[in-house]
């Protein structure tokens, strides 16, 4: 485990000398800004429309209407951006032949897997920090709840990290960046749709299978955080997802040895 930081450091530096990181960062900033402005103007409209209903106006608040929407949109943006960030994590090593360098160096496979995950997670943290910047603007002009604002950011962070773990695994099982990108996208969209699938699905709602499918859905555990509810069961979900994908990624990296 001594070399997690070495691997992560190299990965981040490579990310930042390529246009990918800057492309993703600027694209993300622009998209986040657009969603923010749209949600803001929508909030303004709602405010105007409800002027003649004071009781409803009293229930209107920045968190439930604006930030909830904003964070929700960002989680979808992450879903499409993260496959682009993670697709090269392992495929690039295979293309460069550096896989052989890593596996013949005094590193453990965990050094490699955790290092690469850490690099992706740090990048996502930077993206979420940009989101936090937008949210903090609201504190200047309004009075959002600190708790809900930060728990929502935490939700975005954990969702992003889970997506990175999944994307890393996809990158480890193929040699092609495009294939890694597509696998990640398909898995992430499936995870998003799982609650719907479980309701209409084959198993029938309420059954064990349907419940399991529902539990697997990221949305189900992200929503409580959006609403300011930090439940250890939801945190455990993210930990389990990240942990399991890291374990299978380790197996996939190791598999070059016995293939």
């Amino acid at each position: 485990m001594r070399h997690v930081a070495s691997v992560a450091g190299r990965e981040l530096r490579s990310l930042f000398v390529s246009p990918v990181a800057y492309g993703v960062l600027s694209l993300f900033s622009v998209l986040a800004g657009m969603f923010f402005i749209l949600d803001l103007s929508w909030f303004e409209q709602a405010l105007l429309q409800l002027q003649q209903y004071p009781d409803q106006l009293a229930e209107l608040n920045l968190n439930d209407l604006l930030l909830h929407e904003f964070y929700g949109s960002i989680s979808v943006v992450l879903l499409f951006l993260i496959p682009g960030i993670t697709m090269g994590l392992y495929t690039a090593e295979k293309a460069n032949g550096t896989e052989e360098l890593l596996l013949t160096s005094p590193l453990t496979i965990w050094d490699i897997v955790l290092g690469k995950f850490a690099a992706g997670a740090i990048f996502i943290t930077a993206l979420v920090a940009i989101v936090g910047l937008f949210a903090s603007v609201l504190f200047i002009y309004g009075d959002p709840e600190v708790g809900k604002t930060t728990s929502g950011l935490l939700g975005l962070l954990l969702t992003g990290w889970t997506y990175v773990a999944i994307g890393g695994f996809a990158s480890a099982i193929t040699r092609s960046q495009i294939v890694a990108f597509l696998i990640t996208l398909v898995v992430l969209v499936t995870l998003l749709l799982l609650p719907g699938i479980s309701e209409f699905g084959i198993a029938g709602s309420g059954s064990g299978v349907a419940e399991t499918l529902r539990w697997l859905s990221v949305q189900l555990h992200f929503d409580p955080l959006l609403n300011g509810l930090v439940d250890t069961a939801d945190l455990a979900y993210f930990a389990v997802m990240i942990g399991s994908f890291l374990v299978v990624t380790k197996a996939a990296v190791e598999s070059v040895r016995w293939r």
Partner: peptide
């Protein structure tokens, strides 16, 4: 030194 030198082209 493997058959193809293991290099990161961007470094």
């Amino acid at each position: 030194l493997p058959e193809t030198p293991p290099l990161y082209p961007e470094m």
